[in-house]
């Protein structure tokens, strides 16, 4: 780890000013990803601007019944917040499915969104990786990739985004707010993560030097009937090999509204819009759920060793939507 400067920011404007346009400077939140990457040599910042104590740690219900979450809210506080648990239970479940109690106490909402991939070639500086060193190649495509992307990847990169939280946020149309030296801005989560293409090193739509200040969840009554399910290679404290966030409103056997997002399948949380379109207004049956998943996964381009993710996500879709149907129809009776 190289030597670096450290500054603790007093306020948002100060933080943005401290970082400036320095490409070698990084914001430090909980540090759970950045400090690890600094130890492995993937990140070698010259300056850290500590934003952990900025007054961005609030969670509040917005006037229209949505939720505003500050960027420095810890994962733990987000998951435990009564309004999150009541209005967006899948978000609580997603956050609690990630990492460990200790890490969730440290990790922030802003940092969680900016997590880097856990691809073993990205985290080993001795290996080629287009995301880490543009143009160096992708070792995963022909190497170990059983937990890599099946959707939206390219010849240049097949890494997945590791966040669970972001999968639920994708289902709930979160909008990311940020601050730059030129003032505030915002981006819907749907546009926040850039397509991989031939620039896998460019991961988000944040302008240079921008600081995430928080996010807004629009009101979504359907989200009160939502769940998150994560499959991984041990029962806890592991990244997903496939996950799903789903919210469902069913009346009299008909899907009135549905939200569906997949995790661990792409370089971003994958909003399953094709599946949603296929389902909306149709019957809430296992056959329809499977057909909808197939519609979404038709675009999948599995590699030699990760094709199992297609049936996994299909099965998860059927299982979770069936559970939600039973729960909501049961509650309605």
């Amino acid at each position: 780890m190289r030597e670096f400067g450290y500054q603790r920011a007093e306020d948002v404007a100060g933080a943005v000013a401290l970082l400036g346009a320095d490409p070698e400077a990084r914001y430090l939140g909980g540090g759970t990803n950045l400090v690890d990457l600094m130890k492995t040599g993937v990140e070698r910042p010259a300056l850290l601007v500590d934003v952990r104590e900025l007054p961005l740690d609030g969670i509040e219900v917005t006037a229209d019944g949505g939720l505003r979450v500050g960027a420095t809210v810890t994962n733990s506080d987000l998951a435990a917040h009564p309004e999150v648990r009541r209005r967006y239970p899948a978000l609580t479940q997603a956050v609690l499915a990630a990492a460990s109690g200790q890490l969730r106490n440290m990790a922030t909402v802003g940092g969680n969104l900016l997590q880097r991939t856990r691809c073993g070639y990205f985290t080993d500086p001795a290996r080629p990786c287009n995301k880490r060193v543009p143009g160096s190649g992708c070792a995963a495509r022909d190497g170990e990739h059983h937990n890599h992307a099946i959707l939206g990847a390219s010849d240049h990169c097949v890494a997945t985004h590791p966040s669970d939280m972001a999968v639920a946020l994708a289902a709930f149309d979160a909008v990311i707010a940020y601050e730059t030296v030129d003032g505030p801005g915002e981006t819907p989560l749907a546009d926040f993560y850039l397509p991989v293409g031939d620039t896998p090193h460019r991961e988000t739509a944040l302008p240079p030097g921008a600081l995430i200040t928080g996010l807004t969840l629009p009101p979504a009554p359907v989200a009160a009937h939502s769940r998150y399910r994560k499959v991984r290679e041990r029962a806890s404290y592991a990244f997903a090999i496939g996950s799903i966030a789903a919210a469902l409103d069913v009346r009299d056997g008909v899907v009135r509204e549905v939200r569906l997002a997949y995790g661990a399948v792409a370089s971003r949380p994958w909003r399953a819009r094709a599946a949603e379109r296929a389902l909306t207004g149709g019957p809430a049956t296992a056959t329809a759920f499977a057909a909808a998943a197939d519609a979404e996964l038709a675009a999948a381009e599995p590699l030699s060793d990760n094709g199992y993710k297609v049936p996994l996500l299909r099965n998860l879709t059927v299982a979770l939507l069936s559970e939600l149907t039973e729960a909501t129809e049961g509650a309605a009776r």
Binding site: R118, G120, Y121, T123, D124, A126, R127, A139, D142, G143, E144, A238, F239
Partner: peptide
């Protein structure tokens, strides 16, 4: 990893 001879998952994560 056959190409490099290194482990692709040599840490506790």
């Amino acid at each position: 990893d056959r190409a490099s001879g290194a482990l692709a998952n040599g840490d506790l994560a």
